[in-house]
Nucleic acid binder design. Structure first.
Lengths: 203, 203
DNA sequence: CGGAACATACGTACCGGTCAGTAACATTGC
DNA sequence: GCAATGTTACTGACCGGTACGTATGTTCCG
């Protein structure tokens, strides 16, 4: 009885967290523009002033949502990478394999960051800024992995993998389970194979 | 003097056409959801009832816009294909080369069909239906081209090319000129090379 | 020829609803 | 008491969509 939990197991959840969670689900499922703030607060079981006490604007909430999404993306990315430590080629395969499972679990609606960039073409929009930064980081990472693979032209291969990846995100949301992304892992691997330095070379 | 022009050279342009044109520019530049009907009619120099006499709803106008866009896409596609008659591999290269030029000419905002599918996840939306049909047709075409190339697994290669293509569309709108799509032609060609049947094979 | 009768094509003015965002105040729980 | 939250009501702008009036022919009849 002497326990006074600083973090009670039945977390009473702050309004801000409930809002974040509702916003995440709604934004991802329907898109940011399609979701109104009233919808968010209703789903969260809070009221509008609570939203605007925690976030300065809907745009800021959207940006926050995307930052959280980006963290989740990298978590999934690293989990896949952990399947093949020190083997970037295997890590790419693992990532696409996992992506394929995600698509099968329905509710998949592509990459929230890519989607946000489509919804907000204006470069000044907070949501777009988050998306652009995240995609630049991804590009850098893929190029770095291509380098570790021993590619002849690591930047080109990294970009090629990015094309396949973004293509997998967007086509999965267009076609659902049986879309072109089912071959993403195989195609990426084939592209990698064709882009490596020859094992040994004269001169 | 005896000419009575059924099509006067100074075409007085119907309201519907002016609306279509304005809608096309605005929808493409800003996205469909972001553009209001008032904005469209103002730019077109007409009034709202004119819009609703020519189109039953904004959604229908959006669907019309996408159908027109799709026609333009196939026109560009066939133009590229005409650069390498009977050589599907060269046609793919030509398409990506032309796409690269398009991106350089600024104002590029990706594929309107893909963007619409992102904006309207609901399968029942008229705009999304157009997008899905168009993308299914594209997939079929790419698989068919892969077959003509003599791919080991034409469906897989076709889908792989589709991943690269959609990746090129969406990353070009994210990164602009210097994005990953600059290597799309090269990567596609490399993937094709790695996917062909061996020239001759025993057993 | 003159002129109703009609269709076409367009504008003025407005609808109810929803958008993001806020002000002022009451309530709850530590 | 103090911080977080809820309650209620509101704003001005914008949303997609429409009822209704008007200008300009074109047609057909006398």
């Amino acid at each position: 009885m002497a326990d006074h939990p600083t973090l009670p197991p039945q977390a009473p959840k702050r309004a801000a967290d409930r809002i974040r969670e509702s916003a995440r689900e709604l934004f991802y499922a329907q898109g940011i523009r399609a979701v109104g703030v009233d919808q968010i607060v209703t789903k969260a079981g809070v009221t509008k002033p609570s939203l605007y006490r925690a976030f300065p604007s809907k745009d800021a909430l959207a940006a926050d949502y995307l930052r959280t999404y980006d963290e989740g993306f990298w978590q999934r990315f690293e989990e896949a990478a952990a399947e093949a430590p020190g083997d970037p080629r295997g890590q790419i395969r693992a990532f696409f394999a996992r992506h394929r499972s995600r698509v099968n679990n329905n509710l998949y609606r592509g990459c929230a960051l890519t989607n946000a960039a489509v919804e907000y073409p204006d470069a000044d929009h907070p949501a777009r800024k988050v998306a652009e930064e995240a995609k630049t980081a991804l590009r850098t990472r893929l190029r770095q992995m291509a380098m570790e693979m021993g590619a002849r032209d690591p930047e080109a291969l990294g970009d090629g993998l990015m094309l396949i990846m973004e293509g997998a995100f967007v086509t999965s949301q267009l076609f659902g389970k049986g879309g072109p992304a089912v071959v993403a892992a195989e195609m990426a691997d084939r592209l990698i194979e064709a882009s490596l330095k020859p094992a040994e070379t004269a001169d």
